[in-house]
Write a protein that binds this DNA or RNA. Structure first.
Lengths: 245, 245
DNA sequence: CGGATGCTTGATCAATTTCAAGAGGGGTGG
DNA sequence: CCACCCCTCTTGAAATTGATCAAGCATCCG
């Protein structure tokens, strides 16, 4: 725990005012990819850039959903809890991912930073107005939601039907592919989240996650490197292991 | 298996031509709820109504996604398979539900009828054009996708973290609530799907599903009635059982 | 009736969890 | 700078939930 809460909102609009979106490194990945320069300017008017330390709760399940967010740097996790504390992480968000969609004006899940993060905040009312005005953005958001839905279905298959080993291999593949889409190299995969987070994402315990990593290491499928990196020795093999083939 | 395939497409446009949407019983639940009379007429021009017997595969994972569907009667299931045949049902669809959203022009899951069903078919190209023209419909579709996303996250919590008993109770509650939203009575719940389907939806085996039903019956939480109906004796109790509280 | 299919029940098995303890690593304070 | 503490990760042993294997039973249909 840091000596004081670095996780509070810090307004970076001093920089944002100049050109918050034009230079955005993840623009092509997210909802803003659909927009022209002038439209980007309008979007920039309503957004606020904030930073948070690792482990900061951005919002909790049930909170009124007044803000939409776009991750521009760092990793986030979304999760739901049962009354007795059991936790399911429903997704990890990387730069370019969107969060804050709500059903009945409250968030359906909690959101917390895994690493230090930078976020764009969009007030929902103003964002709704803008979506009305720019159907292209609306369509882009819809397409992103469709992708998320497909990912959610993959995750259901994983949670309901895969073994611990298949789950871990699927997880590593997913991280690798997402890194690649963001222009990073696919192979040593950066795994910034804890064993406990991985466990709660895959429906396992931390012990099983740890044991499975050791097992994959022992059978020369992966190596654990410095700095939370995982080296995958054979991409095709891990792909097969991920589906039990 | 019926002696010949009753599951083939049968065009009911003889009826549909008259007033396919105006009298539609599920209009208020689905994407069409957003539309005015004139817009409905335009939608009716591009749709085709089809019926299928129980057990008919509408499309398979990986097929080119050329059609969107709306369920107007009956129950459908969506599922994904692993190479060795393990199956995860990602959702059951009831009247008013939508299916066929795709990511990269192919379906991300297979769709099969559980009971006899009636579907509205929308050619994707023409539907896209109409969505362009009617932003209200676009927004309605987006809102439906958001709801599905929230449901998918609930299902991840169920698959990853709930016990067999909690899963079955959650399942019964879900069916009860969805029936209620459709104007049916919430309590004897109609459960048209097989034990095998329930198992593949909840990440269990048929044996465990069967045993859990027996256990709930023995402990007087539910009764199994004629015609695939389940009587829930205490709604509050089953709600608590569904979350382990 | 006969056969098929789906559902239930029983007995055993195994994957994963739970319980327990120790090792590694980073930061803090003496 | 070192010692300590805390936290995460790993490893081991035992326990348990749900899976697997194996019959019966019921129901539906021809």
């Amino acid at each position: 725990m840091p000596p004081f809460d670095m996780g509070r909102v810090r307004d970076l609009n001093a920089h944002a005012d100049i050109n918050p979106c034009g230079a955005c490194p993840v623009r092509s990945l997210t909802v803003c990819a659909a927009l022209e320069v002038e439209e980007l300017r309008r979007l920039a008017e309503i957004l606020q850039t904030v930073r948070h330390e690792a482990g900061h709760t951005i919002f909790a399940e049930g909170d009124p959903a007044e803000t939409l967010y776009n991750v521009t740097a760092g990793t986030m996790k979304l999760y739901k809890l049962l009354p007795d504390g059991r936790r399911q992480i429903t997704g990890f968000l990387l730069p370019g991912d969107f969060l804050g969609l709500s059903v009945n004006d409250t968030y359906a899940y909690s959101a917390e930073s895994v690493t230090p993060v930078t976020l764009c905040r969009f007030p929902r009312r103003r964002m709704d107005a803008l979506l009305e005005e720019f159907p292209k953005m609306q369509r882009r958001l819809f397409s992103m939601a469709s992708n998320e839905l497909a990912a959610a279905q993959d995750q259901m298959l994983l949670l309901g039907r895969k073994t611990a080993k298949e789950k871990i291999c699927s997880f590593l593949m997913m991280l690798s592919q997402r890194a690649q889409r963001r222009g990073h190299k696919e192979n040593p995969v950066h795994v910034p989240m804890s064993r406990a987070d991985i466990a709660d994402y895959l429906g396992l315990t931390t012990e099983t996650v740890s044991r499975t990593f050791t097992q994959l290491k022992t059978s020369r499928v992966i190596s654990l490197l410095e700095g939370n990196k995982v080296q995958i020795h054979d991409m095709d093999q891990i792909f097969d292991l991920a589906e039990g083939a």
